[in-house]
Each structure stands twice: as C-alpha cells, then as structure tokens.
C-alpha cells in the first residue's frame, strides 16, 4: 500500500504509528459510511425499505448497524495490515479528516436535499 513507509527512520518512536493510523482512518470510514447510507436511505425508497432491520426504529436501525459493521470491519483489516508498520500519517490523517468533514456535511439535511 502506498501509504506505508517500509523503512522507518532510526529516530522513530518505539511504538509505530500504524495502529493509531488504522483507528483514525477507520473512524473516518465509519463516519462517512453512516452519512452516505443515511443520505441514500433518504433518497432511494427501495434502499430505505431494505435498511429496516428493526421495525420500530425504521431505516435508522439499518443505517447505523451497517455503518458500525463497515467501521469495525475496516478497522480490523487496517489494524491487521498496519499494526507494526510506520505509515505516512500526514496523508492518512488528511484522508480521515476529509471523510469526517464530509460526513458532518452529509448528515446536515439541507445538504442532503441538494441531491
């Protein structure tokens, strides 16, 4: 993966940044998945009906459960791959923060109404 640095510098801290980077970017992915699913369930009736996992809560149950599964799965995969690696944390953080920013934006109803 291009985000990895195979040769950490001699002055690098004992604990690599891979595990932290995996957690950060997975949180960004989870937040973004939630926003995209919420947006899609608002716009597509068939998708909305498919996300009713628990009837009293409606599609919110499917939106949040699916987003949490995507978050935890991506976290597990990234943790497995990056745990002992030193990654380009600047780029990883930028991606995670961009996903977080987009998710904050996409959960705002007037923005959803644009689509």
């Amino acid at each position: 993966m291009s985000l990895q640095n195979s040769a950490p510098s001699p002055s690098a801290p004992a604990l690599t940044n891979g595990s932290g980077a995996a957690a950060v970017v997975a949180a960004g992915i989870g937040a973004f998945a939630l926003a995209v699913l919420a947006c899609a369930s608002d716009k597509l009736a068939a998708f909305k009906n498919g996300l009713v996992f628990y009837k009293p809560t409606g599609p919110l149950s499917g939106v949040t459960t699916s987003a949490i599964l995507i978050w935890l799965l991506s976290w597990a995969i990234l943790e497995w791959r990056w745990r002992n690696e030193t990654v380009r944390i600047g780029r990883v953080s930028a991606i995670a923060l961009a996903l977080l920013g987009l998710s904050l934006l996409l959960t705002f109803p007037p923005v959803v109404d644009v689509f």
């Binding site: 801290p13 604990l15 932290g20 980077a21 944390i89 977080l100």
Partner: peptide, 30 residues
C-alpha cells in the same frame, strides 16, 4: 444521524490513548 459520530469518534480516541498513552506526544500528526 449526526449523534452517531460521537461514539464512533470517542471510541477511536479512547483506543488510541489506551494504546499510546503519553507517548502520543511522539506522534504529533496522529
């Protein structure tokens, strides 16, 4: 919908702090 960003974010924050503790200061961008 926006409320769910709070537990997702704070779970990550907690995990990273438990993992790195004070040594997080050695990873300024993280």
């Amino acid at each position: 919908h926006v409320a769910w960003l709070a537990p997702i974010s704070i779970t990550m924050v907690t995990f990273v702090f438990i993992r790195y503790g004070r040594s997080l200061k050695d990873h300024p961008q993280l």
